[in-house]
Nucleic acid binder design. Structure first.
Length: 412
RNA sequence: GCGGACGUAGCUCAGUUGGCAGAGCACCUGGUUGUGGCCCAGGGGGUCGGGAGUUCAAGACUCCUCGUUCGCCCCA
C-alpha cells in the first residue's frame, strides 16, 4: 500500500518544534491580557464574500490565493486567508459594540493561502492576531504597537526593525492617489511593469511597493503620502510617533510601506527581521477605520496586527526536549504490572517519567533511560518486588540507594 | 504564476567513463546471569521519490511526473 503524503505547503509539527508554538502562545496570552485583551476563537471557514468584501477584490490574496470551494449545497466557502475579517464578522454578529465602547481581542490559529511554499511561507500558516475595535484615538494605535513589540521582546527576539507609515483616511487618500496617478502618467506609464499598470487604476498605492527596477525608478521621486495627509491624519500620526518616542521604542518611517490588504487607513506598521531570508516581514498591521462598516456593521474604527508564527519560530532557534524525572526499568516479567502502578503514583505526584512495557535486558533499559535524559533510573526486579522497595540510581553520578515504595516520590 | 538547485537506509550524505547499493550517525543484540554514557563484535533495515524511454546492462543518460528547497512574486 502506498503511503499517503501530507498536502503540499502543510506541515506536521513534532516536538520540540511544536513547543515553540505553545511557548509563543503562552507569552502572548500573558502579554495581551496585560493590555486588556481577551481570546476570541473564530471558525477557520467563512463565506467567501466576507473576504472579498473585507480584504478587497483587487488584492492578490483574494484574486489568486484563496482556498475556495463550494459546499454540498453549492455555497461558496473559503478557508480564512487572514484573521481580521472573521474577527470583525464575529464582533458584528454578536453586536459587541452595544456591550462595550472598545473591544480588544486576540486570536491564534491557522490561515490558508495557496502560494508557492518557501522558507517562512506555508500554505497553512499560523498567525497571532490582535484587534482593538471602537477606538479612533491615536493612543489606541500606539498601544497596539507597544503591545506587539512587548510581545516580540517577551519571546526573546531582538534586532527587529519597526517600520511605520500613514496611509491617510477616506478624505485625503483619494487626493494622494490622484497626485500619484498624475505624476506617474505624466512620466510614462508604459515604463511600469504589467502589474503596476493595472494597479495604477485599481490600487495606485501598491505601485510604491513594487520591486521591479523600472517601477522603483519611476517612483523614486514620486509624491510622498505624508505630505498629502489631511491635518487630522497628520496630527493623528504625530501623536502615535510621539508616544513611541517617549517609550523609547526605536522605529523608522517608511513612506513606501503599503499593506497588501485594502482595508488599512492611517497608521500602518510592519516588523522586519534581517535574519530569516526573503520572507522577512514577521508582523504587520495598522488601522482599518472603514472595515467594520464595509462588512455591514456600525461605522466603527479599529486597529490591530497579525504576526506570523512560523517566521517568529525561525528566529527562536533550536529547542531541546526536556528530560525526565525518572525512568522505571523492569527486570522481571512478574514485576511489569506493579511497575505500571508505581509509575502511576509518581506521575500523580507530579513526576515526569517513563516505565518500561517489557522486561528487556537491563542494559537496553538503562540505555533508554540515558537517551531520555532521565535524572533517575528506577529498578524494579524480583528482589525489590518481594521487599516492597525500588532501587534508585542517580544517572549523573551513578550512586544507588534502595528506597521503600511509599517514600519513592520524595527521593526523586 | 515564474526561475534555479536537490530527491540513494530513520538522519546526514558518498556512489568514478553506465557494470554486485555503500559510509558515518541512529536503532537492535551480545561482550557484562541485575547496571547507561566510552570501547569492541555482530545484526536488522533500500520499490535508489514515481512512471516511461535509451541500453546486453540505468542510482547514474533522456523525457514526463510528484515532492523538497532557495529566490521572484505576494504576504505575516
Amino acid at each position: 500500500m502506498a503511503a499517503i503524503q501530507r498536502i503540499k505547503g502543510f506541515a506536521d509539527l513534532f516536538a520540540p518544534d511544536s513547543d515553540a508554538f505553545s511557548f509563543m502562545e503562552g507569552v502572548g496570552r500573558e502579554v495581551f491580557a496585560a493590555y486588556g485583551y481577551t481570546e476570541l476563537r473564530t471558525p477557520i471557514m467563512e463565506h467567501t464574500e466576507l473576504f472579498s468584501r473585507g480584504i478587497g477584490t483587487e488584492t492578490d490574496v483574494v484574486q489568486k490565493e484563496m482556498y475556495t470551494f463550494p459546499d454540498r449545497k453549492g455555497r461558496s466557502l473559503t478557508l480564512r486567508p487572514e484573521a481580521t475579517a472573521g474577527v470583525m464578522r464575529a464582533y458584528i454578529e454578536a453586536a459587541r459594540h452595544s456591550q462595550e465602547q472598545v473591544s480588544k481581542f486576540f486570536t491564534y490559529g491557522p490561515m490558508f493561502r495557496y502560494e508557492r511554499p518557501q522558507k517562512g511561507r506555508m500554505r497553512q500558516f499560523h498567525q497571532i492576531n490582535c484587534e482593538c475595535i471602537g477606538a479612533s484615538e491615536p493612543l489606541a494605535d500606539a498601544e497596539v504597537i507597544l503591545m506587539l513589540m512587548r510581545f516580540l521582546t517577551g519571546i526573546g527576539l531582538t534586532g527587529l526593525s519597526l517600520e511605520l507609515n500613514s496611509l491617510g483616511c477616506r478624505e485625503c487618500r483619494p487626493v494622494y492617489n490622484k497626485a500619484l496617478i498624475e505624476y506617474l502618467t505624466a512620466l510614462d506609464p508604459e515604463k511600469l511593469c504589467e502589474d503596476c499598470r493595472r494597479r495604477l487604476t485599481a490600487n495606485p498605492l501598491r505601485v510604491l511597493d513594487c520591486k521591479v527596477p523600472g517601477c522603483k525608478e519611476m517612483t523614486k521621486d514620486a509624491p510622498v503620502i505624508a505630505e498629502y495627509n489631511c491635518p487630522a491624519c497628520q496630527e493623528h500620526f504625530l501623536v502615535v510617533l510621539r508616544i513611541l518616542q517617549e517609550a523609547e521604542l526605536p522605529h523608522v518611517l517608511n513612506p513606501r510601506l503599503v499593506r497588501g490588504l485594502d482595508y488599512y487607513t492611517r497608521t500602518t506598521f510592519e516588523v522586519v527581521s534581517s535574519t530569516i531570508g526573503a520572507q522577512a516581514s514577521v508582523a504587520g498591521g495598522g488601522r482599518y477605520d472603514g472595515l467594520v462598516a464595509q462588512l455591514g456593521g456600525p461605522d466603527l474604527p479599529g486597529v490591530g496586527f497579525a504576526c506570523g508564527m512560523e517566521r517568529l519560530s525561525l528566529m527562536l532557534g533550536e529547542r531541546a526536549l526536556p528530560g525526565l524525572d525518572f525512568y522505571l526499568a523492569v527486570l522481571d516479567e512478574s514485576a511489569l504490572e506493579s511497575a505500571m502502578n508505581i509509575a502511576q503514583e509518581l506521575r500523580v505526584q507530579g513526576k515526569r517519567g517513563e516505565v518500561s512495557f517489557s522486561a528487556r535486558s537491563l542494559k537496553s533499559q538503562m540505555r533508554q533511560a540515558s537517551r531520555l535524559k532521565a535524572k533517575y533510573c528506577l529498578l524494579l526486579g524480583g528482589d525489590e518486588l518481594a521487599a516492597g522497595t525500588v532501587t534508585v540510581k542517580d544517572m549523573e553520578n551513578g550512586s544507588q540507594t534502595t528506597v521503600k515504595r511509599e517514600a519513592l516520590a520524595e527521593s526523586l
